[in-house]
């Protein structure tokens, strides 16, 4: 129950577009759709190594870096504190290893939550209004990204339940969702039985995990979305981002809005018109993602 937005720059080899700035401008236009929490996920040029971002419970001090690195069982290095938590390099990409690492960290440091992982993905989330995301988020550059304004429905309001959600344990997958997945409970039980660990009680978290599993099995994003359409029940308009671009899916009865503008250079997506016109100009031709529609845009 929320506002969502996305931006993709298609200019070849342009890795330093003002993605954070653009997403925050769009988020400001959608603020009225949810003020419980806000967040953006930005994709920068891929680094050589993958980073894990962990959010730390508000008010609690970070332990000594070596204590965290020790908890990483040799997989963590280059720990850097950042607003609300830390990031560190992970010397593994395999889902099993990453899943075990994040679950282990969360167990050892209660309240800590792994919020992003990958070579290009970086996520900033905050409780409250989008303006609280601050300059760190605003200054992020890259090729594309997605944003979320949350109106909490059934699960808690805290950074771990804010969106975008990382599609854990898979690298570089993020999702921003408006709606409610009504078969979340059973889906989650089945995924937990297969070894997945969840960071929240928020139904939206499962979407990126469902898609991530299909991508990891070798499926393309478009096919993964068609399959996901048959797996999910309930109301949804969502954006899923990978290193390559952004995909979208809307539920069969079009309960939640999703609009887009596409030009040769850019694709912008949002729940409502004004966010699109703000960044694409008043003359932009706005189209609707229709019921049941799957669409994928790749960066250049």
């Amino acid at each position: 129950m929320c506002g969502i937005a996305g931006i993709l720059y298609r200019t070849p080899k342009a890795y330093y577009q003002p993605v954070g700035h653009t997403l925050l401008a769009m988020a400001t236009c959608l603020q009225h759709r949810g003020s419980d929490s806000a967040g953006i996920a930005v994709y920068a040029k891929a680094e050589r190594q993958a980073w894990l971002q962990v959010s730390w419970p508000a008010g609690a001090a970070l332990p000594e870096p070596r204590e965290i690195l020790a908890a990483g069982g040799g997989l963590l290095s280059q720990l850097q504190p950042e607003t609300g938590g830390f990031r560190a390099v992970v010397s593994a990409m395999e889902p099993d290893a990453v899943g075990a690492l994040t679950a282990g960290l969360e167990q050892q440091f209660p309240g800590a939550t792994a919020i992003a992982f990958g070579k290009s993905l970086c996520i900033h989330k905050t409780v409250g209004l989008a303006e609280k995301l601050g300059e760190d988020a605003e200054d992020m550059t890259g090729t594309h990204g997605i944003a979320h304004l949350r109106l909490a429905t059934e699960s808690r309001i805290d950074p771990a339940h804010a969106q975008p959600f990382w599609g854990r344990p898979y690298p570089d997958i993020a999702v921003t969702h408006n709606g409610h997945i009504t078969n979340y409970y059973k889906l989650r039980k089945r995924m937990e039985a297969r070894g997945f660990s969840f960071a929240s009680q928020n139904d939206s978290e499962i979407i990126g995990m469902v898609i991530g599993e299909k991508l990891a099995a070798g499926m393309g994003l478009e096919d993964a979305l068609y399959e996901t359409r048959e797996v999910l029940d309930g109301s949804f308009s969502f954006l899923v981002a990978t290193t390559d671009g952004i995909g979208v899916l809307r539920d069969p009865i079009a309960t939640k809005p999703l609009l887009y503008v596409e030009t040769d250079d850019m694709v912008a997506l949002a729940s409502e018109h004004q966010a699109l016109h703000r960044v694409m100009g008043n003359g932009a031709k706005v189209r609707e993602i229709v019921a049941r529609e799957v669409r994928v845009w790749s960066r250049a």
Partner: peptide
């Protein structure tokens, strides 16, 4: 209207 965000409007 469909959800709480629309209800506000």
């Amino acid at each position: 209207w469909m959800g709480p965000e629309d209800l506000a409007i």
